[in-house]
Design a protein around this nucleic acid. Sequence first.
DNA 1: TATAAGCTTTAAGTTAACTTTAAGGTCAAG
DNA 2: CTTGACCTTAAAGTTAACTTAAAGCTTATA
Lengths: 136, 136
Amino acid sequence: MRIGQLAETVGLPTSTIRFYEQKGLMPAADRTAKGYRKYTAEAVERLKMIKFATSLGFALDDLPGLFASGEGLDHEQVMAHLQDRTAEINHLLNTLTRQKTQMEYLTQRLGELWRAGHCMSACELDGLLSELSTTK
Amino acid sequence: MRIGQLAETVGLPTSTIRFYEQKGLMPAADRTAKGYRKYTAEAVERLKMIKFATSLGFALDDLPGLFASGEGLDHEQVMAHLQDRTAEINHLLNTLTRQKTQMEYLTQRLGELWRAGHCMSACELDGLLSELSTTK
DNA sequence: TATAAGCTTTAAGTTAACTTTAAGGTCAAG
DNA sequence: CTTGACCTTAAAGTTAACTTAAAGCTTATA
């Protein structure tokens, strides 16, 4: 299988696959006589794993630690990665939840003023935003 | 008030304040005889608003549309911004919630295998990850 | 055989929101 | 009068994860 076919199979652009190889996330591909990259099903699996891990929000730089190769995976290290990422996710969830509440309040408040016939000037909006930012 | 004092007051580095000015988010500051930027309380308010809006996840490029200046703010446009950002937040919340579930499953499953005495090889971990990625 | 699709490489560009650097002027204190 | 804190500018660097460009070779098809 050449790179275009692989790209098609996993749903990634060829440029990304080359990029992953360059980053060391994919082993250097075998080549045909003319220098074309040649892949097997292993590459498909590898790319799917990369896609999965990144879909969980892991950075590309985390992956080597996550799929450490060689004898005996370091369990502690893998678990530590998972914990770290879980903590990050929880932190983001808290942040976003807070943001959502504020957005709802802001939207509602602005809607009220609008319906009340206020012809809001930038200055008034500024006041509203300031009010909210201190409410925070 | 000079830039250092302003920076201190709002809790931003001076470089960021200059950057905001350059971006057009802050009006070009008045200068002292020797060319130092000179600020009043207005600048403090403006920066607080910027901080607040960015804390809601708005991009700097969204802010001109959000605090449009001049006569008569475009309510529809402001509301549209708020709706867009709310939609983004909801999307992110969904994504993160999904990620959290997957992370929990992965962590638990890996913990089980570990406690069961499996001396996981990279290959086995790959299997686990693949399994999960198809579960998704 | 020619034309297009597909492959190669290295290097530079993209985006966001800043930060850092370089080279220098100003000001208050001791 | 010198030392250090603070200010100025323009330009380049940072990070992540890619993408795009440039220039050229290969392969399949009509």
